[in-house]
């Protein structure tokens, strides 16, 4: 059966919103952990960097000025109406998209998304106190895991699945890149860092924000080193939140579509170029050319691919 362009759009954005909600909660988890181990001033700095990472500085300061105390930040990011990018708003947006493409979803996926929305709406109905924060963040992660499991276990591996996966990996790549970019600034304001002693705790927080600290430790026998961490987050194809992993999945789903449709489009051309850039890079060339420049270019290319997909597959009239 033919798939509506609007349906492709809906599944794509449902997946993006779910992924963003999950990543925001992971970011909060890392921020919370960091803030606990710091004094008040550095804790505020830490929370500020969380707000910068999700790109919500303007909206946050309009609501709370420059007061970056923890409870304000996490409530803003979890549930505040003033924040259109809050976890609650993301989940609501995911559910609205799911509802509008319900005929394309399996009953299991729809019910998982709907139940997540119902239960998190409940959990986030009132401001979250410090004592409950860990539990709330855990609940968000658990719900998102349920949805992912329902998708994995019940969806046909056809175009609907491809568009969903493409949404997931476009969003995840973007989120990991932004975390990397912000942390790069916060931690390494000058290029003179090479060889200087580094604050392990800070680097660990970067890993934590993408749920990669245990994987990294396991691979590197516990040795914290910024070059290794950057390489892990950008280039390690084994780690499901690295840029390389996302690019790889994006590519295979996009070419899955080409196979099913029997033709390629602009998005495939752009995807090839992005893939080539990745294959030709190693951590040395990336650092030489500038990590920030690399990340900025990556975010832009990732966005271009997404936009080409929206056009090629007629998401909009």
């Amino acid at each position: 059966m033919a798939m509506l362009g609007r349906t492709a759009n809906g599944t794509f954005w449902m997946a993006r919103y779910l992924e963003r909600a999950e990543n925001t909660s992971r970011l909060l988890e890392a921020g919370f952990r960091m803030a606990l181990t710091r004094d008040a001033i550095t804790a505020h700095e830490e929370w500020r960097s969380v707000i910068i990472t999700v790109g919500a500085t303007a909206a946050y300061e309009a609501a709370h000025g420059c007061d970056y105390s923890g409870d304000k930040v996490w409530n803003f990011l979890l549930r505040e109406k003033a924040n259109p990018g809050s976890v609650l708003a993301m989940i609501e947006a995911a559910r609205t998209n799911a509802r509008s493409v319900r005929t394309a979803l399996t009953r299991e996926v729809w019910e998982a998304v709907n139940e997540s929305w119902m239960s998190l709406k409940d959990v986030l109905a009132r401001p979250v106190r410090e004592a409950a924060l860990g539990e709330v963040l855990g609940a968000v992660r658990r719900q998102m895991t349920l949805v992912r499991g329902a998708m994995d276990g019940s969806m046909l591996r056809n175009e609907i699945h491809n568009f969903t996966r493409i949404g997931t990996f476009v969003e995840r790549a973007d989120n990991t890149a932004r975390i990397l970019d912000v942390k790069y600034y916060v931690l390494l304001p000058s290029v003179a860092w090479v060889g200087s002693s580094l604050d392990n705790v800070q680097w660990e927080s970067v890993l934590r924000a993408v749920a990669g600290e245990r994987a990294y430790r396991w691979l590197n026998a516990g040795k914290m080193d910024p070059r290794g961490i950057a390489s892990f987050l950008i280039l390690d194809q084994r780690f499901p939140r690295s840029l390389a992993f996302c690019v790889d999945k994006l590519r295979s789903n996009l070419f899955g579509l080409a196979h099913e449709y029997g033709c390629e489009s602009t998005a495939h051309q752009l995807m090839r170029e992005l893939g080539t850039t990745f294959h030709q890079s190693n951590i040395e060339t990336i650092l030489e050319g500038g990590l920030h420049e690399f990340i900025t270019a990556f975010i832009a290319s990732n966005q271009q691919v997404a936009q080409a997909i929206e056009q090629d597959y007629r998401f909009y009239a």
């Binding site: 033919a2 798939m3 509506l4 362009g5 609007r6 492709a8 175009e159 449709y261 007629r314 009239a317």
Partner: peptide, 20 residues
């Protein structure tokens, strides 16, 4: 198919839906 008005258009004398 579940369609909305914005998915449909008249093309060559038929009503058609915008698919991918």
């Amino acid at each position: 198919e579940l369609v909305e008005g914005s998915d449909l258009r008249v093309i060559d004398g038929r009503v058609a839906m915008r698919t991918t």
